[in-house]
Amino acid sequence: MNQDKSQTSSHFVTTARAVFVGPLPDPNTLAQYAKIYPGLEKTIVEMAQKQSQHRIEIENLIGGVGDGGGGGGGEA
Rank of each mutant, 00 (worst) to 15 (best):
E59W: 04
G73Y: 09
K5F: 14
G68S: 11
D26Y: 02
E59G: 09
G69C: 10
A31W: 00
A18K: 15
G64Q: 13
D4K: 14
N28I: 01
T29R: 14
H11M: 01
P38L: 00
L24S: 05
A34G: 04
M47V: 13
V65R: 13
S10T: 08
E75Y: 05
Q7R: 10
V13H: 14
I36P: 01
G71I: 11
G70T: 08
Q51T: 09
T14G: 07
G70D: 05
G70H: 06
F12S: 07
Q3H: 10
S9F: 04
V21R: 15
I58E: 08
G64E: 08
L24I: 04
L61T: 13
H11V: 08
Y33H: 05
A18G: 08
G71C: 09
K50P: 00
V19T: 14
E41V: 02
I62G: 05
A76D: 12
A48M: 03
E57P: 02
N28S: 02
E57I: 06
Q51S: 15
I44D: 02
V65T: 14
L40R: 08
S52R: 12
Q32C: 00
V65K: 09
E59D: 11
D67T: 14
H11D: 02
V65H: 06
E57V: 06
Q7H: 10
M47G: 05
H54F: 08
V13L: 14
S52K: 11
E46N: 11
G71S: 12
L40P: 00
E59T: 15
V13D: 11
E57L: 11
D67V: 15
I58T: 12
S10P: 00
Q53D: 12
Q7K: 07
K5N: 12
F12L: 05
D26T: 05
K35Y: 01
V21N: 10
Q53I: 06
N28R: 05
A34K: 07
V45N: 09
R17G: 02
I62D: 01
